[in-house]
Amino acid sequence: MTLDEIFVLIGGILLIALVAWYFWFSSSEGAHAQSGTGGLQEALIKVKGGYSPNIVVVEAGKPVKLNFLREETAACSEQVVFPDFGKQATLTPHKTIPVEFTPEQPGEYEFQCAMGMLRGKLIVE
């Protein structure tokens, strides 16, 4: 092997490792919902290539209001779906859209875009 081929091989291996780390090993971002008046738990989730934060922690039996701010116009982020709660919302670009419900049972519940490419998790304690 020539020196050029060795550099290309090492570069390819490093690139593969970087992609694998990004998709499988990078840390998840999470936040606790803020409690407001009447026990309402509220959080702002920004939508731009993903959900930020992508993990929201709330308390069971108290109403939740998740405010989604869509900061992009990509087709995938047009809707957010909460299959376990039977909720979904159409997200208008550059506007905050609330999704309200009351989780009764503790557990981990997924939310996602309509295509399933953007994913987040609601942790109910």
Rank of each mutant, 00 (worst) to 15 (best):
Met1Pro: 01
Thr2Tyr: 03
Thr2Cys: 05
Asp4Lys: 09
Glu5Leu: 13
Ile6Leu: 12
Phe7Asp: 12
Phe7Val: 06
Phe7Ser: 09
Leu9Phe: 08
Leu9Gly: 04
Leu9Asn: 08
Ile10Leu: 14
Gly11Ala: 12
Gly12Trp: 00
Ile13Gly: 00
Leu14Arg: 03
Leu15Lys: 05
Leu15Phe: 14
Ile16Trp: 03
Ile16Asn: 03
Ile16Ala: 10
Ala17Pro: 06
Val19Trp: 02
Ala20His: 11
Trp21Ile: 13
Phe23Asp: 04
Ser26Cys: 09
Ser27Gly: 08
Ser28Arg: 15
Ser28Gly: 11
Glu29Gln: 15
Glu29Ala: 15
Gly30Gln: 13
Ala31Met: 15
Ala31Asn: 14
Ala31Cys: 13
Ala33Gln: 11
Ala33Asn: 12
Gln34Gly: 04
Ser35Gln: 10
Ser35Asp: 07
Gly39Tyr: 06
Ala43Lys: 09
Ala43Thr: 08
Leu44Gly: 03
Leu44Ile: 13
Ile45Val: 14
Lys46Glu: 15
Lys46Ser: 13
Lys48Met: 10
Gly49His: 11
Gly50Asn: 11
Gly50Phe: 07
Tyr51Thr: 12
Ser52Ala: 14
Asn54Tyr: 03
Ile55Asn: 06
Ile55Thr: 11
Ile55Tyr: 03
Ile55Glu: 09
Val57Glu: 08
Val57Arg: 15
Val57Lys: 14
Val58His: 02
Glu59Asp: 10
Ala60His: 14
Gly61Gln: 12
Pro63Phe: 03
Pro63Leu: 03
Pro63Lys: 02
Val64Asp: 00
Val64Tyr: 00
Lys65Asp: 04
Lys65Tyr: 02
Lys65Met: 09
Leu66Thr: 01
Leu66Phe: 03
Asn67Ser: 13
Phe68Glu: 01
Leu69Asp: 13
Arg70Cys: 06
Arg70Ile: 04
Glu71His: 09
Glu72His: 04
Glu72Cys: 12
Glu72Gln: 12
Glu72Arg: 08
Thr73Gly: 15
Thr73Tyr: 09
Ala74Thr: 15
Cys76Met: 04
Ser77Ile: 07
Ser77Gln: 07
Glu78Arg: 08
Gln79Cys: 04
Val80Met: 01
Pro83Gly: 10
Asp84Glu: 10
Asp84Thr: 01
Asp84Ile: 00
Asp84Lys: 14
Gly86Pro: 00
Gly86Asp: 02
Gln88His: 10
Gln88Met: 08
Gln88Val: 01
Gln88Phe: 05
Gln88Leu: 05
Gln88Arg: 08
Ala89Met: 05
Leu91Gly: 06
Leu91Val: 12
Leu91Gln: 09
Thr92Ser: 13
Thr92His: 05
Pro93Glu: 08
Pro93Asn: 05
His94Phe: 15
Lys95Asn: 12
Thr96Ile: 06
Thr96Leu: 01
Ile97Leu: 07
Pro98Asn: 13
Pro98Arg: 10
Val99Lys: 00
Val99Ile: 07
Thr102Asn: 05
Thr102Gly: 02
Thr102Val: 03
Pro103Tyr: 14
Pro103Asp: 09
Glu104Ile: 11
Glu104Arg: 09
Pro106Asp: 01
Tyr109His: 04
Glu110Ala: 11
Gln112His: 14
Cys113Asp: 13
Cys113Arg: 02
Cys113Phe: 04
Ala114Thr: 03
Ala114Cys: 01
Ala114His: 06
Met115Lys: 06
Met115Ile: 07
Gly116Lys: 10
Leu118Phe: 05
Leu118Asn: 02
Gly120Phe: 03
Gly120Arg: 07
Lys121Cys: 07
Ile123Lys: 15
Val124Met: 05
Val124Pro: 04
